[in-house]
Simulated scan of single mutants.
Amino acid sequence: MREIQQKIDTMILHLGGYWRPLSGLARLLEEVGEVGGAMRKGSAEELKEELLDVLVISTCLANQYAISLQQQEADVREVTKEQLYFQIVEEAGEVARILNAYEGDKKLKPNRQGESLQLHIEQLQRAVISLGEQCNYELFDSLYALIDEKSTRDFGRFDHTPDPITETSVRTYVTYQSGRYWGGIDPKPFERFDRYMEREKHIERFLKIAHIEGLDGFVIQQSKDGLLYEDGYGYRIPETFHIVEETYENHQFLVIKPQQ
């Protein structure tokens, strides 16, 4: 599954970049509806295409939260195709509930043990794989072919949307440290932390969800005349986080990390 996630990441960057999470969620729900339409019409080829789209878009959402998905096996229990579709709808609804709390207007519950985004994306994908198995589709083989096809055409199809998983800071940092990280834009020379926060909106998102989703840190690539972040520069991160300085070769980073 790691290879699939990497291939989808490369494909999305080729197309222009990730959508905003709520836009990606809208696309996921659209495809889930189209799965239902294909089932109602009895169109086998269309159903296969829509199931592949659900796998791709749900994987995109996982990538945006630095989730390492586990490859799902088909459910061997005796369930009907309709029951599997109901599972897909239910899990897509759970993904929507969580993302609405993370990115939208829904209030974020302080205690959601066992209710991670990863859990529901994996259960969604398991139902998709199970439905494909019942229809005798080789979904993973077809998924590789779909990724290769899209990766060789449609360059720049989507407008670029800045995303904390695609910033140069985090792409550089994870070559030195493994884990689940987001990254920020480059600071301006001698920029105060509060001014940086006005430009880099993703830090607030990170502080909101890092403990719940298990994100390991938010990475800012630093220089000797970069971000001014010590006390007195207009912004203090919550006490449940701390900032560390890390240097690897000629790269310097500030990393906001959750307290253990």
Rank of each mutant, 00 (worst) to 15 (best):
Y173C: 03
T161Y: 05
Q123A: 06
T168G: 09
F140R: 08
L146H: 02
E149P: 03
E149I: 15
S142T: 08
P164I: 12
I165C: 00
R171H: 09
L146P: 00
F140W: 11
R180V: 15
F155T: 14
A145C: 06
R112H: 09
P110W: 10
T166Q: 01
I147K: 00
T172W: 03
L117P: 05
R153L: 07
H120F: 15
T175V: 11
Q125V: 13
I147P: 00
I185D: 08
D186V: 15
C135A: 05
L139K: 02
G184T: 11
G132H: 07
R112N: 06
Q177V: 15
Y176F: 15
G156K: 15
L143E: 06
Q125M: 14
Q177E: 15
L146R: 01
W182F: 15
G132N: 05
T166P: 00
R112K: 05
G132V: 02
L119G: 09
S169N: 10
S142L: 05
Y181I: 12
N136E: 11
E149L: 14
V170Y: 02
S169P: 12
G114C: 12
T175I: 10
Q177W: 07
H120L: 09
R112A: 11
P187I: 05
K109P: 03
L131R: 03
V174N: 10
S142H: 08
P162E: 00
Y176R: 10
T166D: 04
D159G: 11
L124E: 12
R126Y: 01
A127P: 01
G179N: 02
T168R: 06
R180D: 13
L143Q: 07
G114N: 05
T168S: 10
Y144E: 00
T172I: 08
F158Y: 10
W182H: 09
T161Q: 00
G114T: 07
R112D: 04
E115G: 13
R157D: 07
E149R: 09
P162W: 00
A145F: 06
V174R: 12
Y176I: 07
T175L: 13
H160K: 08
A127W: 01
D163S: 10
